[in-house]
Design a binder for these strands. Structure first.
Lengths: 156, 156
DNA sequence: TGACAAAGGAGAATGATTCTCCTGTAATAG
DNA sequence: CTATTACAGGAGAATCATTCTCCTTTGTCA
């Protein structure tokens, strides 16, 4: 759960961004976004649907999906797992990092040496056991960048 | 593509591990693993299927999936995207890292400050544009660890 | 008020993955 | 070398998440 101060701030940002983009501030959207914004457990669409259903029993799963996409495009939400659409395999069992192209979803290996060592400066929460760690670098790959005029360097 | 020295080494490891686990060293398995081991582009099961089909036209997609699982359990393969089964959302738009439990797939936020800054020591390949970077920490969460006798600390 | 566009609801369609069931074959002992 | 048995593979049905289609409702604005 999230503190109510942070929740309020997120809801305010949501409202402002909807106005900015001309998105109708509907009851469904507000409830869906609040369900997302008040959670720090990275829910699935199905999970959001179950939660929203308690307040709006007639809500449809399609509406939840549609709004998740709308919010993601609006920058109000991020996908934790950019590659969730299909399984990707890796036969390289050594340590290395991955660069994922946000446009074409291609994964490029980055040698371990090319990134400063990942080091925990504070211990993990109690009871957590770390197996391994790697950097996930997000951006645009060379071939997508070549075929696109607008390259953001960091913000979006 | 992968150098033939590395490919040979991977195939040898594959053969040894099959023997070790009592897995039948079938033609299909050999071709499937070779397709995986000779690629560094992180193929999908479908992609492997297409490639293997060229050598064994009668191969079934189910066989490819079954062996991918077998190989993964044997530690001969890794999933690039542990969370590929379903979309996960994040309304926390600030920088932070993720700890993913390999057992229950729960995602726990790790504050940005708790990990040494991610820094590229060598530039990305030509033309690549970085948007953002985060650490992906893999391991076992507290509740899974509590309900399990065998906790590996790093290798497996 | 009338009409258009955005949104929502319901359920069908799609695509990836898993499952079932039956046949074939690798491993192994004799 | 062959028989046995359990593991593997093939085919296609079933399942599950996600997307799409189509129609209705609602909000907005001339």
């Amino acid at each position: 759960m999230i503190s109510s101060a942070i929740l309020d701030q997120r809801m305010e940002h949501f409202r402002a961004r909807c106005a900015e983009l001309g998105l109708a501030y509907t009851h469904q959207r507000m409830i869906i976004y609040r369900a997302l914004a008040s959670s720090d457990s990275h829910p699935t669409p199905e999970g959001i649907f179950e939660q929203v259903r308690r307040e709006i029993p007639s809500i449809s799963l399609g509406t939840v999906y549609k709004n998740i996409h709308t919010f993601t495009e609006a920058g109000l939400l991020r996908e934790v797992n950019l590659l969730h659409d299909s399984l990707r395999l890796d036969a390289n069992l050594g340590n290395h990092h991955h660069f994922v192209c946000v446009r074409c979803k291609a994964v490029t290996d980055i040698p371990e040496k090319d990134v400063a060592p990942l080091r925990l400066k504070h211990p993990l929460p109690d009871g957590f056991v770390l197996h391994r760690a790697a950097a996930e670098l997000l951006g645009v790959c060379a071939s997508c960048a070549a075929s696109e005029p607008d390259l953001q360097t960091g913000s979006s």
